[in-house]
Simulated scan of single mutants.
Amino acid sequence: MTTPDLIWAALLALGAAYELLALADAEDGNTLSERVRAWFRVHTRPGRAIFAAAWTGFAVWFLVHILG
């Protein structure tokens, strides 16, 4: 494995480990999905629209980026 592979693997593993700890913790607001909901304020109509546009834009860009 190259250095970038190791760094990305470590970042993903660290993120997964934190998510598992957050799921095991009873405190609200720790998981990635809870944070994303708070950041984009998806409880509001504009927040939902912004999140949907951002997520769709990212998904389309990433698909084209990887396959192109």
Results as ranks from 00 to 15, higher is better:
P46Q: 07
V60T: 00
A38E: 12
R35W: 10
L6Y: 10
V36H: 12
A16I: 01
F40R: 03
R35D: 09
T31M: 10
A10H: 03
R48N: 03
E19F: 00
R41I: 15
H65V: 00
G29A: 13
T56S: 12
F40I: 10
R35V: 15
T56K: 04
I7F: 04
G47Q: 08
W61Y: 11
A10Q: 03
I50E: 05
R41E: 14
D5Q: 14
I50H: 08
L21I: 07
W39N: 11
A17M: 07
F51R: 01
A52W: 03
L6Q: 15
A59C: 08
A10Y: 07
E27A: 11
G15L: 07
L67A: 05
L20K: 13
L14S: 14
A53E: 08
L11G: 03
E34W: 11
L11R: 05
D5I: 05
A17K: 01
A52R: 05
R41D: 15
A49E: 13
V60A: 01
L32D: 10
W61Q: 02
W61G: 01
A9C: 10
D28W: 06
I66R: 11
I7L: 12
A10W: 12
T3P: 06
R37W: 13
A54M: 09
P46S: 10
T31H: 15
L6H: 07
W55I: 08
W39H: 09
R35P: 12
L67H: 00
T56D: 01
V64L: 05
L6T: 04
G57V: 01
L14Q: 13
V64R: 05
T3W: 10
H43E: 15
T2Q: 04
R45G: 14
H43Y: 15
V60Q: 00
L67D: 01
I66K: 07
A54G: 13
A10P: 00
P4F: 02
E27C: 07
D28Q: 09
A52Q: 05
E19N: 01
I7S: 05
W61L: 05
T2A: 02
L32A: 15
A9L: 14
G15A: 10
A10N: 07
A16N: 03
G68L: 04
